[in-house]
């Protein structure tokens, strides 16, 4: 299965006609939709590396929605969860949202509300997944730098001029220049601002508007 390119929508509800109706509504999105009458069946089928989102009834015969959510949280499953319910149980809704559910739909709801909600979930999931992939890639590139090159990178993104870096590391400005070229090449950065983005992505530089912004994070 192509795990990077596509998103899958998972729907869990114990009422077959409703499952069919929600499936028909989701056809608009032109994405694969998987339907499950039970939470357990969905749990067995979920691939943690697969993108998409999950729509589930809050009350089901085998496991309630909150239990399902907890199961997902324990497995660090990044899929956004949309709950649906036929009850007016606001307490459970609040609890679910506090524990990280993305949204809450109360039956009966309109197709456009469902679609808006799912589009938001898919968009968020795509961004999250993209960011996670970028972070992984940035960290991989950073790990390939020598320890000295890593030090130079941190000082460059902290805004230090070559002369300052040279004094700080007790090496010549020419050597700094040399390291810097390698850093740019290995990190595949076309500019210093590119390098800054990569430094933020791999967590060696923190963006902040506080006074200590640009702080050198050390090793």
């Amino acid at each position: 299965m192509n795990t990077e390119a596509e998103q899958i929508i998972h729907v869990v509800d114990d009422d077959p006609p409703f499952l069919a109706a929600i499936g028909r509504a989701l056809e608009v999105l032109e994405l694969p939709v998987r339907q499950y009458p039970r939470a357990r069946q969905c749990m067995e089928a979920l691939d943690p590396d697969q993108g998409g989102c999950l729509i589930t009834d809050l009350r089901m015969p085998d496991l309630d929605g909150l239990g399902f959510q907890q199961w997902l949280n324990e497995r660090h499953c990044p899929l956004p969860v949309i709950f649906i319910t036929g009850h007016g149980d606001t307490d459970t809704a609040v609890k679910a949202l506090k524990r990280g559910a993305l949204d809450f739909l109360r039956k009966p709801f309109r197709e456009e509300d469902l679609l808006a909600c799912v589009r938001k979930a898919l968009c968020l999931e795509r961004e999250n997944r993209q960011r996670a992939r970028d972070e992984r890639e940035a960290r991989r590139r950073f790990a390939e730098l020598t320890p000295r090159e890593q030090e130079v990178l941190k000082l460059v993104v902290a805004g230090c001029a070559n002369k300052v870096i040279a004094r700080h590391l007790v090496i010549s400005p020419r050597t700094v220049e040399h390291h810097r070229k390698h850093v740019m090449l290995k990190m595949q950065a076309r500019s210093t601002s590119d390098l800054l983005t990569l430094a933020v992505l791999c967590g060696v530089y923190r963006l902040s508007l506080d006074d200590d912004r640009g702080e050198y994070l050390g090793d």
């Binding site: 409703f18 929600i22 028909r24 509504a25 649906i84 036929g86 039956k107 009966p108 469902l114």
Partner: peptide, 11 residues
């Protein structure tokens, strides 16, 4: 009631 009504609205 909301269960079947949900199906009615979506359909």
């Amino acid at each position: 009631l909301n269960q079947p009504l949900g199906t009615v609205v979506l359909s």
